[in-house]
Nucleic acid binder design. Structure first.
Lengths: 253, 253
DNA sequence: TTCCATTTGTTCGTATGTATA
DNA sequence: CTATACATACGAACAAATGGA
């Protein structure tokens, strides 16, 4: 008998041999692939261990490994030494262009966006922020920290910095409108675009990892961007953290 | 007496008090900043421990911490819990545009570029590669893996994939010419441009970390790009790993 | 910090089945 | 038919990495 029955690969199969010209590991691969595509093993979920599969299929662990290796090559599963094998979550392609806003970038991927404010405060600008905004260091800036979600899953943690004196009461206005774009519009700023974006990678702090609901051992993408008004004046300096294994930034050049 | 004498903060200073209206921690901060800018503490080098500084300046460790915290806010130093404090290495801004080549991007930052081939081989295309190159899975592709350096320091680890049948003997030609662009030119391909770039972050494998001479615990940027010919035909699928803490990708939008 | 259990990754050796000359 | 080469499968042991105690 072969493995590709209609039932998923749970429970115990009878001791098999080569059947139908298909080697054991190929049969196992097809069975697992079917289960993954059918959603028996959901994205982000851990698969049973190699040992478990070996027992379940009544084969040697090597045979299971060979099947899994094949699936890995096709990107259907990913293994982490010392941890386990899992079905990779669908990566969200976050398109970056002159005009993209968070909600649009997420909607374009047929996901439901949501941005919520975590905190808003004001403080003297650091050297980095001052340089980006074209002000002197120490000039007060407003920071709005937002958590961006797609389908209810945290995606990004963004700090938006504005010159405080240009936007009095910005935090409150944002809280009322629920959107950076809308908040800026109440100040008469409607036309702005992304000037440049720098991308680096690092490990998140514990707090950042918690907010993004990801392990602190997985890296985050750090995108620093400068938004300018129509006449080129720096308007906003943003620093956004993306969950590294859930987001892929896409730059069309 | 204050700390900002002309000598760097080595050796033992006399017990100080508030002088010249500057608090102790500000004096220490200025002294350390001067040392960093003067190169006493070179980029990438470890600073002495907080305890050492505390003894050296005859102050409490908290005072040193306050000074270091200030420097951290300005990005002059970075502290890693359980490890130490160090001067961050200068980050190379790797500009990505339609036409950028590795050597140009590095040269633009006044650094000396160097690209060397690590290995070249051929194998049946995986699903990802096939999709990017617009071929059927299993069609043979040539892979050229190169290590990119700036000022002799490894920066990037790039896998370049081409359809094997389109460029017979490519690996040898590359070895002879020492450049992807030059190698392609011998096949009559002179006009190609970057169509898109996807950026993600992950932790490197042990081998990748070794090649980049970075710890396996520091993330890498993974840039996947598709280069197309003038008529839009996929020419190359490239996957480049950048040392996350030495490179910042810059996208002008 | 160290220790420990769990899990994947690697490398031996051995045996058997399959295709082909 | 045998001989050979190759793919498949099993077993054992150990290495490396992770996460939690």
């Amino acid at each position: 008998m072969s493995f590709n029955s209609s039932s998923p690969s749970v429970g115990r199969a009878a001791k098999p041999k080569r059947v139908g010209g298909l080697s054991l590991w190929r049969q196992i691969r097809e069975q697992l692939k079917a289960d993954i595509l059918a959603g028996t093993f959901a994205p982000g979920e851990m698969l049973p261990t190699e040992q478990t599969f070996a027992a379940r299929f009544s084969v040697n662990r090597h045979t299971v490994r060979r099947a899994i290796a094949s699936l890995t090559a096709d990107g259907l599963v990913a293994a982490r030494q010392g941890h386990g094998t899992y079905v990779p979550e669908a990566v969200l392609d976050y398109a970056v262009s002159k005009r993209t806003r968070f909600s649009e970038a997420v909607s374009a991927q047929s996901r439901v966006p949501k941005a919520s404010m975590i905190v808003a405060d004001a403080f003297p600008s650091t050297a980095t922020i001052a340089k980006a905004l074209g002000i002197r260091r120490g000039v007060k800036v407003v920071r709005i920290r937002t958590l961006g979600e797609a389908d209810g899953r945290p995606l990004s943690l963004a700090d938006h910095h504005f010159v405080a004196s240009h936007f009095p009461g910005l935090a409150q206005v944002y809280a009322d409108t629920g959107s950076i774009s809308a908040a800026l519009a109440t100040y008469g700023v409607t036309d702005f675009s992304r000037k440049s974006t720098d991308v680096t990678a690092r490990l998140p702090s514990r707090e950042e990892a918690d907010l993004l609901t990801q392990p602190a051992s997985r890296p985050v993408l750090v995108a620093q961007s400068i938004n300018v008004t129509a006449d080129g004046t720096p308007l906003e300096y943003g620093r956004t953290l993306f969950a590294g294994d859930r987001v892929q930034m896409v730059f069309e050049t």
